[in-house]
Amino acid sequence: MKLTEDIKPVTYMKTRAAELLREVKRSRRPVVITQHGEAQAVVLDVATYEALRDATLLLQLTAQGEEDVQAGRTVPQAEAFARARKRLAQRERQG
């Protein structure tokens, strides 16, 4: 993060929104928007946002899996694959 470039007051966003969006898209760096000297929001390009969202979802799934293991909510691999094959076969018959 470059403090002189990546932190902008809300008035900058109001008066130069198109320019701000072009720069965020080009640099792929987030820009922090401040109001009264305090950070209030972050502007991200869509690709970076989607990557962050996907990474967060993956971490959540991993945490849920760890909780399942700790709680003993697991099945042997062979059983899991058998269940998956059965569901796939049912969908093929329906579709």
Results as ranks from 00 to 15, higher is better:
residue 21 L to R: 11
residue 41 A to Y: 12
residue 50 E to P: 01
residue 60 Q to M: 11
residue 25 K to R: 11
residue 64 Q to M: 01
residue 77 Q to N: 10
residue 75 V to G: 01
residue 6 D to K: 07
residue 50 E to K: 09
residue 75 V to K: 04
residue 86 K to N: 10
residue 93 R to D: 09
residue 72 G to Y: 07
residue 73 R to G: 12
residue 18 A to Y: 07
residue 53 R to Y: 11
residue 47 A to D: 09
residue 94 Q to C: 03
residue 41 A to C: 06
residue 76 P to V: 15
residue 56 T to P: 02
residue 90 Q to N: 06
residue 33 I to R: 10
residue 30 P to T: 01
residue 45 D to H: 01
residue 71 A to C: 07
residue 36 H to C: 13
residue 45 D to N: 05
residue 47 A to H: 15
residue 45 D to Y: 05
residue 46 V to W: 13
residue 22 R to P: 04
residue 41 A to L: 07
residue 9 P to H: 06
residue 78 A to E: 04
residue 11 T to W: 14
residue 43 V to M: 07
residue 52 L to C: 08
residue 26 R to N: 11
residue 32 V to P: 03
residue 40 Q to S: 02
residue 1 M to S: 07
residue 47 A to T: 09
residue 27 S to L: 06
residue 29 R to Q: 08
residue 8 K to W: 15
residue 16 R to E: 15
residue 7 I to M: 15
residue 4 T to G: 12
residue 76 P to C: 14
residue 15 T to K: 12
residue 12 Y to S: 06
residue 43 V to C: 08
residue 12 Y to C: 08
residue 82 A to G: 02
residue 4 T to L: 11
residue 93 R to C: 07
residue 78 A to Q: 00
residue 28 R to N: 06
residue 39 A to G: 13
residue 94 Q to Y: 01
residue 42 V to Y: 00
residue 43 V to L: 12
residue 89 A to G: 07
residue 19 E to D: 13
residue 79 E to H: 01
residue 87 R to L: 13
residue 75 V to N: 05
residue 74 T to N: 00
residue 20 L to R: 01
residue 27 S to N: 10
residue 87 R to Q: 14
residue 86 K to D: 14
residue 51 A to V: 02
residue 55 A to K: 13
residue 49 Y to E: 03
residue 56 T to G: 11
residue 13 M to A: 08
residue 3 L to E: 13
residue 90 Q to P: 00
residue 54 D to S: 06
residue 31 V to Y: 11
residue 79 E to N: 01
residue 18 A to G: 03
residue 71 A to F: 09
residue 8 K to T: 13
residue 65 G to H: 04
residue 54 D to T: 10
residue 39 A to K: 10
residue 79 E to I: 00
residue 32 V to D: 06
residue 25 K to V: 14
residue 73 R to W: 04
residue 44 L to M: 04
residue 38 E to Y: 03
residue 86 K to I: 01
residue 36 H to P: 05
